[in-house]
Amino acid sequence: MTPNPIDLMVNGVQHQLSVESEMPLLWVLRDVLGLTGTKFGCGVGQCGACTVRIGGAPVRSCTLPVGAVSGPVTTIEGLGTPEAPHPVQQAWIDAQVAQCGYCQSGQIIAAVCLLEQSPSPSPAEIEAVMTNLCRCGTYAQVRTAIARAAAALPASGGQA
């Protein structure tokens, strides 16, 4: 049985995919589109390494069937590059957040979504939203980077 093609917009690029609609978005990104910045950590939505942005919200792509994706997807590659990082990425670099770095794509996407919703998040808001697992324990630097990014981003928010 050949499934119907699935339309998917990722980082501003439109794709037509002939994959099972129940295939998780994570594996479409990594193994079909070759966007390996989004990571596999648990496969059950527990760790957040696979977080991408869909319609302004952080979504754990390892448990989201690609057929259920409701809008354009932004991955870490869609934010910025080493030469031209997004302000949140720049804040991450300035705060020297990453250790092994494996969780940081998901952490950064989660922080971008948080700052769009709440340009000056309180510690309680940060604690409620930043639930991604980091085995290296970079949480103090994550807090610092979010504060720096909040100061650097335009107060109107919404930019990203």
Partner: peptide
């Protein structure tokens, strides 16, 4: 390794 790890390119 910082810039690569913050941009998904590591």
């Amino acid at each position: 390794d910082m810039a690569a790890k913050c941009t998904g390119t590591a």
